[in-house]
Design a protein around this nucleic acid. Sequence first.
DNA 1: ATAGGCGCCTGTAAGC
DNA 2: TGCTTACAGGCGCCTA
Length: 263
Amino acid sequence: MPELPEVETTRRRLLPLLLGRRLREIRHQDPFRYRHTERAAGRRVEGVGRRGKFLLLSLSGGLEAVVHLGMTGSFRLERTPHTRAEFLLEGEVLYFHDPRRFGRILVVEAGRYEEVPLLRRLGPEPLSEAFTFPGFLQGLRSARPLKALLLDQTLVAGMGNIYADEALFRARLSPLRPARSLGEEEARRLFQAIREVLSEAVALGGSTLSDRTYRQPDGLPGRFQERHAVYGRAGLPCPACGTPIAKRVVAGRGTHLCPRCQT
DNA sequence: ATAGGCGCCTGTAAGC
DNA sequence: TGCTTACAGGCGCCTA
C-alpha cells in the first residue's frame, strides 16, 4: 500500500522526469475521480513535492496537481491494462496505473485544499523538523488505541497499515494500548521508532508486497518488505523472541504483532 | 469525541 | 476443475 515511503520514492523517481517539463494534457475518462485536470494543460511542472501520502506537483500559473495513490496507485513508464490516466509530456507519457481505482487526481490553485479536507488536517511530516517530541506527546492525550491514532494522519502524516505495525513492534508497544497510557519513555520509543522505520523504508524504496501492486515508475519493486518484522508474517517467529506473530483486527485493520514483545 | 460498519474497487487466495 | 466467497485496505461517510 503506498504509504509515506512509497510516495516519497515515487516523488524522487518522478522528479527528473517531470521537473521543468511542460504538461500537454492529463488524459482520462473519469472526471469524478480525476477532477479539474483540464486546468493542467500546457502548464510547466515547477516542483514535485509530497505531504503525507499526497504527491504535490507545482504547476506554472499558480496551480497544483494533488495526487493520492490510494491503495494500488502507481506511476509507470509503460501502459498497463490498468492505466487510468495519462500524463502527456512533451515527447513522453507517464501512465497512472491503479487497478482498484482508489487513487485521486485533483488540480487546484496552489495551496487551496478546500476540496481535499484530509490534506488540510494532516499532522507533521515525521521526517522533518516539524515532527517534535513535545508535539507528539501532546497528541498522545487520547484514549484511542495507538494503532488507530497512528493511522489517523493527524498525529503524524503518512503512516499506513504496514508502517504503523512495524513502528509499534520496534517500540515494543501493543497496538491496543490507549495512547494516554504511555509513559514518557514509551512515548519516546514510539517517536523514535516512527522516524527510524520510515527513514529506513525510504532508503530501501518502500515495500512491495506479495501482491506486487506497488512499483516504482521503472517497474522495480521496493526492498523494505524483506525487513518487515511483523507485517504479513502471521504465524512466523518474532525476530526478537521467536514467539509466533499474531494477527488480529484493531481499529478495523488487520494488525500484526508479537504478543510477547509488545505490551 | 469516538467506535463500528459500510461502500468504493478489483485481483488473489481460500474454500467447497 | 470450476465456482463462490472472503479478504486486502485508504479514506469518506453514516450511525450509535
